[in-house]
């Protein structure tokens, strides 16, 4: 579904991604872990071109999007949901409008269809009763669940999660992870940058360890956590587990 080939990204001469090559298949749940500054988030943000890659190619559903014209890029983004560390809900809109804005303005659904879809997704994340509230009235965990619902309304083929629980109070992490797990079980393709090792172990179909702009090691979770091969992964796991 997503093919990444020799992806490189530099910021002002500093190379953050140093040649990433990987394939992500439909229904895969790829969890990316690694120390901060290793390029995990940059990698994720290159996939929907919030960051423009310096070189290399990204192919999404058979289409090379690395230098795709804007019109095509925005079409691709409709199918590639993203959930941010800091939620980025739209504070001036009600929860309902947060969910329906994009599909309605993009002409993908009528207002009624979008409202119905939004209700369905709000139910899924257990926040249907909040539809007329504003984001400022919600807790962090609720905001992130709404952000997930917002990306789901678009019927994405894949959702990118950029440290979805890192900005949350500890007691709210569980509710967000539960929703993500549920999505995974329903077969959503997910790429998740996280520090939640429990989630990686339980949900991932494959875990990537990034270090210094490269994929240092990747494996299915059981093998990955019980018998890491590279010394850097061994030392990283010994610190976080």
């Amino acid at each position: 579904m997503i093919e990444v080939n020799e992806l490189r990204k530099s910021f002002n001469g500093t190379e953050i991604l140093k040649g990433i090559t990987t394939n992500i298949e439909k229904n895969e749940k790829v969890v990316i872990i690694g120390p901060s500054g290793s390029g995990k988030s940059t990698f994720l943000r290159c996939l929907n071109r919030l960051e423009q890659p310096t070189s290399g190619t990204i192919t999404f559903e058979g289409v090379d999007i690395t230098n795709a014209p804007e019109k095509q890029l925005y079409k691709v983004r409709e199918k590639m949901g993203m959930v941010f560390q800091h939620f980025h809900l739209f504070p001036h809109l009600t929860i309902q409008k947060n969910l329906t804005l994009a599909p309605v303005k993009l002409g993908l659904m009528t207002k009624d269809e979008a409202d119905e879809k939004a209700n369905e997704m709000l139910n899924k994340v257990g926040l249907a009763h909040k539809s007329h509230d504003y984001p400022s009235q919600l807790s962090g965990g609720q905001k992130q669940r709404i952000a997930i619902a917002r990306s789901l309304v678009m019927n994405p083929d894949v959702i990118l999660f950029d440290e979805p629980t890192s900005a949350l109070d500890p007691e709210m992490v569980g509710e967000v992870l539960r929703i993500m797990k549920q999505l995974a079980e329903e077969g959503m393709t997910m790429i998740v940058v996280t520090h939640e090792m429990g989630f990686a172990r339980e949900v991932a179909s494959r875990v990537l360890f990034m270090e210094d702009g490269l994929i240092e090691e990747e494996n299915e979770p059981n093998e990955f956590f019980t018998s890491p091969k590279s010394p850097r992964l061994q030392s990283f796991l010994s610190k976080v587990l």
Binding site: R77, G81, H88, L89
Partner: peptide, 30 residues
């Protein structure tokens, strides 16, 4: 306005003028 608002708009498939019109301007105007 938080750059994250632009990114949230972009990630939903809203192009720059649409993001500006529906997400950024209403907040900035206030």
């Amino acid at each position: 306005i938080d750059p994250g608002q632009f990114e949230a708009g972009a990630s939903l498939g809203l192009n720059y003028p649409r993001t500006m019109l529906y997400i950024i301007m209403p907040q900035a105007f206030k």
